[in-house]
Design a protein around this nucleic acid. Structure first.
Lengths: 143, 143
DNA sequence: GTAGGTGCAAATCGTTTGCAGTACA
DNA sequence: TGTACTGCAAACGATTTGCACCTAC
């Protein structure tokens, strides 16, 4: 299930958030890229769409989108966070530390692991974060 | 293979690094804790061992140790990095969003998942990050 | 003796917050 | 109209850098 811009707009509205041009711009940028984007990447791209938008607004919008599960946060090793489109289907990331490319994958392993853990620990598990870091085929070739 | 302090010292020497008391102190702190430590955690612990050591030196020492693969960097979601002894015994965290308690666990699921992923994607996988977020038994009881 | 290591302070980077003005519903 | 949203600037915390002094080898 892929989230269209329209769908995101309506979800935002449903939750009582106003639809400002800045928010539209952020949504547009995020949905139109399959890469993971740092707030700064988004900021730069937004200069073309809706100039004058502040970086602060982008941070605040990303926070909302992440909270609603419309995008997901990626911790790609470095010191800055980045975001990528979230299909509502739970997925995980395989990140290349060389070029930064992100490969999504899903795994049924996690479901059973989560169930076991929950039973053993008594936790009510709400979510998880799984990321693999490595080098993609291309970057392995380049020294 | 478990890394002793002595072994780490000799590896440092082999690579042309000098053995200063500050570096010894960092190694001592890191090897004597099985937890994940932020540079600041280490800084505080070092006050007892070798007071006067600067936070800067800790950063620089950690960088060296990480580069030599003697410790490994952990990105526990938040905005600050932390380090842990690099044993090949990978473990993961189950974190309560209520009280913040952290439960460690290991999983053999991950090994097979990593292997599959590596084969399918062509990535050389160097590490991973797995965290579950939820509510522990106690926090579920308290509204 | 010398190159490498240290500590301080200041710079830097990513992110957050306070606040006054603005615009969506 | 009123509340939520925006943008600026300044605050903030983690990390890095410049530089003069120090110390392990």
């Amino acid at each position: 299930m892929k989230l269209t811009q329209r769908k995101i707009y309506s979800i935002l509205k449903q939750h009582g958030y106003k639809l400002t041009p800045q928010r539209r711009a952020v949504v547009q940028v995020v949905t139109s890229s399959s890469d993971h984007l740092t707030p700064n990447d988004i900021y730069e791209k937004i200069c073309d769409i809706y100039p004058g938008t502040g970086l602060v607004t982008i941070y605040r919008t990303l926070e909302i989108l992440a909270e609603l599960g419309l995008i997901c946060e990626v911790h790609s090793g470095g010191n800055c966070r980045s975001y990528t489109m979230g299909s509502q289907q739970h997925h995980h990331h395989l990140i290349c530390s060389g070029c930064g490319i992100v490969v999504d994958f899903t795994s049924h392993y996690l479901n059973s692991l989560e169930k076991n853990l929950s039973e053993e620990s008594g936790f009510r598990i709400d979510g998880h974060l799984l990321e693999f870091i490595g080098l993609c085929r291309k970057c392995q070739a380049v020294p």
